[in-house]
Design a protein around this nucleic acid. Sequence first.
DNA 1: CCCGTCGATGTAATCGATTCCACGAACCCA
DNA 2: TGGGTTCGTGGAATCGATTACATCGACGGG
Lengths: 339, 339
Amino acid sequence: MASIKDVAAEAGVSVATVSRVLNEHPSVSAAARARVLAAVEALGYRPNAVARSLRTDQTHTLGLVISDVLNPYFTELARSVEEEARALGYSVIIGNADERPDLQDHHVRNLLDRRIDGLLVSPTDGGSPLMLDAARAGTPMVFVDRWIPGVDVPVVRADGRAAVRDLVAHLCGLGHRRVAIIAGPAATTTGRERVEAFREALAAYGLELPDAYIGQGDFQAESGRRVTEGFLDLAEPPEVVFAADNLMALGALDAVRARGLRVPDDIALAAFDDIPWFVHTDPPVTAIAQPTGELGRAAVRALVDRIEGRPGESVTLPARLVVRRSCGENPTPVQRSTS
Amino acid sequence: MASIKDVAAEAGVSVATVSRVLNEHPSVSAAARARVLAAVEALGYRPNAVARSLRTDQTHTLGLVISDVLNPYFTELARSVEEEARALGYSVIIGNADERPDLQDHHVRNLLDRRIDGLLVSPTDGGSPLMLDAARAGTPMVFVDRWIPGVDVPVVRADGRAAVRDLVAHLCGLGHRRVAIIAGPAATTTGRERVEAFREALAAYGLELPDAYIGQGDFQAESGRRVTEGFLDLAEPPEVVFAADNLMALGALDAVRARGLRVPDDIALAAFDDIPWFVHTDPPVTAIAQPTGELGRAAVRALVDRIEGRPGESVTLPARLVVRRSCGENPTPVQRSTS
DNA sequence: CCCGTCGATGTAATCGATTCCACGAACCCA
DNA sequence: TGGGTTCGTGGAATCGATTACATCGACGGG
């Protein structure tokens, strides 16, 4: 691969001049510029980003450590992050933690070793010393979706409280009283908050959330299945199951189907995080939709602000309830149908 | 951030000795090794991967340019690629081409500039000069899922011919005669091959695939919707629609639902690529499943073989038909139900 | 006892860029 | 016409690692 020296030789100038042309430094004669450009073209030269990064101490790369790529919510988040980053002149390296703290740590270390300019994290747990140290040491960082309390890092997330209240109102309106939740890991903020918001909203309607109706999941489908089976085994099973993310809802659907039961006739279902497939499941699933694309873009903007020396603010956007048919009641005045 | 010089100073040795300890060079005394390790620990030193890459000309990084991250098939592929790469000591940088040749080119250029050790590509089109040049110039490269004919690069893919024959047999068994396909872009191998395989299989059953029944899609949901609407507008609409990927199947489902029609009663549906959601759609979708995880792992192994100087072979694995209810017939002997 | 070998270590070149500094030429204004 | 700018350019240091080569001391064999 041709290096800057080859270009300099071909153009009959010094490497300094080549570098100036490439970086649009004003102080280069038109003649020199033309010769350099011709040499670049002739050799098919492309600057070595590794060498450039070493010298400038900038990689123009963002790290994104995500909890689970297979979760469509995070996939969409990753996509919007990459888009906005590209628009701002950055590349993104994605690390998939698979909800495992050890993997999360592996990726954070890897990204830090590669000297990424900034880190976007959706933490799987309370944060490893590695990550906390990096934050303290001044590595530009932004939390997205989930965060770690007590760490001085901007947070970009959705607030689902209002939407959860809407959901509870919807459930009560349909006459449901015994409602259960499949919670996310207590180590995550979203895991805790969704339970809290749900409990508070229920309280406003005079309903309780007994311990037996709080199942401990891990945001993955399998745990949704397991917890739902537990609920169905109860002497008095809940009338509604609210899954704290879309994958656990999928697991719940599996469990219900495996028993030969039907949603919403035998048990109702709602989920946090809306995804395109929920329109086409049987039945379509009532869900709380986050403004995912906006979150990703806002997170990148906040991070790049930090990197480039500007403040970089936290952002909270509202989520909203999307009512479909999985909790009962037909939104359209027709007979129950399969569609 | 501490550099190797700081460690050397702290340990009272030269940078060469530090480097030797870090790289497990045999010729270092136990005493020196211990002092270096202590210094590394004390300073929280981590080697700068950028500097190391510049010197060694290896980044231990693979580039993966994927057609569309939002497609669950590719998401799963990306995940398995990352897993296998990690097991072999490599990181992966993913570039999402969104089925756009210009974006694909952007990512290939970016990855090449970053001097990745090897490139995994699922080409969106016939290949830009940039990519072809890189292949010719000897950049280790492997095509996965899709490929570009006439380029000397190993290909890791699934062969769907047998599964498509099974599908056609299934359709004929159900009495369907007028079958249509939503094809992928003609610029992609999978776009062409799936139509070809379908046509051949139909021929074996004495059926034709008229031009009016070949809709041109682009592997994205919206095109599936559009093409399906076209089919439904025909004087004699097809009895079956076969979507060449899962997103176009989703679009087809949208279009059918928008007309107030039902699958499979009014029109049957099948798809290439199976995904977890197809179990839960209404109705569950009959699909051709690829061994996605195996493909990703095999592709990484082939690429790493190439990088490390071994041959690196093409791999073709069989796909298989998964029959569900979207083409009609109830696999279980019960009445039509919603589940 | 001397020389060759081997093990441990340091010095310095190197990878491919960026950028500070110095230098010469041209130009401007008094 | 002379001194001070300004502009274009090249030389060389630098980023943080790896590694070829030199050096030096200890040790073993003849």
